[in-house]
Write a protein that binds this DNA or RNA. Structure first.
Lengths: 109, 109
DNA sequence: CTAATGCATTAGTTAATGCTAATGTATTGG
DNA sequence: CCAATACATTAGCATTAACTAATGCATTAG
């Protein structure tokens, strides 16, 4: 059985381009502050904080306050519902498996 | 390079629970008509047609008119952008790889 | 031929959502 | 200390989006 609520949350959260860009940027960096995320994002700091809240609620990121700054990092488990969902319908992108296979070997040979 | 527009479309399309349910139902059946999709969907036939239009634009489904009925089927390639996106960030759900591995073997041993 | 069926489309309503601007609350630098 | 910095939160606004009801168009049944 698939966790409908979890997939729902993750999909909805990552559907917004701005928020997904924020997530991708967090993923790319080990840890990153709100100021850095705001810079070059095209939106205000308040908007970034709102997106971070959504990402946190979806379990996609975690925070680490340090002084007056807050460092954000990606939460790998958050993508699990999406992975599971894809897995459930895996038979329908069978032709993509070659790529995925090589990827798996590349990361964990 | 990641196809931002494609991921955007697929994510946005699958983010809606009703529409995703329609897609899942199309995936589960080989081919299915609009009447069947409407039955038990909780929404009107018009809504279903609208969702089908979105899914078609996202490249997730294809249609085959036959008489006054239209049969819909899943379009595997449509999920490619999502697979690619996941692959790009694969290093961050490394722990899910065991599951994915067994899945791969299950489908294509 | 005529009525019924299957589907698409449109207009209009309602709810959700992303944004800004402003404000509040800690924390640190000078 | 006190001003500045970092972040969160709120209210308000504009836009998007999902839905219904209604209508139109084609196709088949009787």
């Amino acid at each position: 059985m698939i966790e409908t609520a979890a997939i729902n949350a993750v999909m909805r959260t990552l559907a917004d381009p701005t928020r997904r860009a924020v997530f991708e940027r967090i993923v790319s960096s080990d840890e990153i502050t709100v100021v850095e995320l705001t810079r070059g994002s095209g939106v205000t700091q308040g908007a970034i904080s709102q997106h971070l809240k959504s990402l946190k609620l979806a379990g996609l990121v975690a925070e680490r306050p340090e002084g007056r700054r807050v460092f954000y990092r990606a939460e790998p488990e958050g993508l699990a519902p999406l992975v599971d969902w894809m897995g459930h319908y895996a038979v329908f992108w069978r032709e993509r498996f070659a790529n995925l296979r090589s990827l798996l070997k590349e990361i964990d040979p």
